[in-house]
Write a protein that binds this DNA or RNA. Structure first.
Lengths: 336, 336
DNA sequence: CTGTTAGCGCTTTCAT
DNA sequence: ATGAAAGCGCTAACAG
């Protein structure tokens, strides 16, 4: 491996001078600068950032910890994060927690050991607070993505879950639906609670009684159980519309309904939180409340890098991104 | 920051003993082992992998370099790669080249400098050979993904592009189509050449004359030009079906056609290479030749780690993954 | 403008 | 079973 000493020897200067050329720091005569650069090229020298990190105590690496890159929301978010990181001179490590605390913990251990400069963190749930506290203890800056965690103060980028949910449910109500099911994420996750709150508020504002039997909590992961809606379908007065708290749940629901030959939207209207990326463009089907996923990632990295470079002086920043209701084919007026 | 010396002092042993406990290497009495572990916990010690990497010359990091994580093929591939990497004890950095050689070069420089142990590499095109040669020169193992590069020998995981394309075009022919357009990726990319070859062969096998005016080369990126099909549509005998060489092109085409009020599949059948991930399940629309994207990533990492750990002894391995024709709504029999 | 010294936190090697 | 010394490749701090 070629080191600065190899360069230094050939150029007949000290290693320090080579280091200065690499980092373009300090005053160096153009003559030696040119000479050193030429030799670096000849020898195909590449600085060893491991060695540099050891002394500078920074790795120029960030970790993006999400639940599943396969979820279109996080896919687009990851793209935004990577773009921003690259522009700011950082590399991005990534991991999928699958909404699983144990897996999340493993990644947190890795984060600690890898000495990344910061973390963009979509927590699995409220119990992630232990992991976040651990990051704090080790002085690793992080920005919370999409989900808040009680008891944890930090920068964050979140969406208007409650407002978005209310808007979506009011849309269903405006179509004449009164029996509206809610298929939710885990109540351990802040967005699930907020979407429930929005659902509840929409009913209340429209004088529709809340029926807890219309609500089931499945978690945000994709479900493969075609019987997942049975508790709702077996009710004496089953729902005529369903609000799914995220895109994966909506897909699971549509799949389950199809297996039972229940048509969407003729027999059941479906709407959900989060859009489907490029494919929505192809064949717009589900009515959704879309979030600006790319911005979540892009702005998240900006907050994070700002925090890293300005050494946690400023107050916590909370960016709240707007949602957008997009009405498509999966919801239709109730006919009776 | 807590170091092994802090632990050593408290435990009244040498740093070396602490190191041995951490790595579970060498013979150590259970007594000191327990004592040291206890103190590590008390002090919240986390090994500094930067320091370790500097001496061991391995980072336990891999880079996944793809063109765009947002493309469902690469999204799923990335998930497979991350799963495999994690299971094998590696962290995954990722980058998007956007099919752009300049951007790819920047990532290669980063790779070199970061001293990752290996790279999973979906090259932007044949000209990526310079970048790959650069990796070779620096002894960084890599596995080629999806695309071959002339003049570069390495492990690789690729799909049956030619066979898949032939199968897809023969499907179109079986529906009665004779004027079949090909909207292709750049001929600088091996898969584009192979898909063209499959297209050509399908025509030949069915005695359909090849008309070069039916072929346009746009590159694999998403296109936002609604006039992108005009060269085909303006022909005296325009195509009745189009084979798009990847999923992004298919989306671009469908969007362009819609803006011109040309219906799919009534006025034009469309089929493409690569599926759309979870959302295909939601509302199956495009007829595709699907590739096992997850396996591309998963097996790619396995090959890579194998190569890393067995020091490039073995012969180059070439995994060829099968394609699967999935017929959906976007293609229909030609009526005249 | 350039060089010297020391040390980042760890593991390898050789002793004991 | 444990320790001492050296060094991985680089840069901060100081000296000249």
């Amino acid at each position: 491996m070629v080191t600065i000493y190899d360069i230094a020897k050939r150029a007949q200067v000290s290693a320090m001078t080579v280091s200065r050329v690499i980092n373009n720091s300090g005053r160096i005569s153009d003559k030696t600068k040119v000479k050193v650069k030429k030799i670096m090229e000849e020898l195909n020298y590449v600085p060893n950032s491991t060695a540099r990190s050891l002394v500078t105590q920074e790795t120029k690496m960030l970790t993006l910890l999400i639940t599943d890159i396969t979820n279109p929301f996080y896919t687009t978010l990851a793209r935004g994060a990577e773009d921003a990181a690259m522009q700011l001179g950082y590399k991005l490590l990534f991991g999928n927690s699958d909404e699983n605390l144990q897996k999340e913990k493993e990644y947190v251990d890795t984060i600690l050991s890898t000495r990344v400069d910061g973390v963009l963190f979509a927590p699995a749930g409220d119990a992630s607070s232990d992991h976040l506290a651990s990051l704090k203890r080790h002085r690793i800056p992080f920005v919370l993505l999409d989900r808040e965690v009680p008891g944890i103060e930090s920068d964050m980028v979140i969406g208007e879950s409650k407002e978005g949910a209310r808007q979506l449910v009011e849309h269903l109500i405006s179509l004449g639906h009164k029996r509206i099911g809610l298929v939710n994420g885990s109540s351990e996750v802040s967005t699930a609670r907020q979407r429930y709150a929005g659902y509840w508020e929409a009913l209340k504002l429209n004088d529709i009684p809340f029926d807890e039997r219309l609500m089931i909590e499945l978690g945000y992961k994709q479900q493969h159980d075609t019987a997942l809606l049975d508790p709702l379908l077996r009710l004496e007065h089953p729902p005529t519309a369903i609000f799914a708290a995220n895109n994966f749940l909506a897909v699971s629901i549509v799949t389950a309904l199809r297996s039972k030959h229940i048509r969407v939207p003729e027999d059941m209207s479906i709407a959900c939180f989060d859009d489907f990326g490029i494919v929505s463009q192809l064949n717009p089907f589900l009515t959704v409340v879309a979030q600006p996923a790319y911005q979540f990632g892009y702005l998240g990295i900006q907050l994070l890098v700002d925090r890293i470079q300005n050494k946690s002086t400023a107050e916590w920043k909370k960016i709240i991104l707007p949602t957008e209701l997009i009405c498509r084919e999966s919801t239709k007026p109730l006919v009776r």
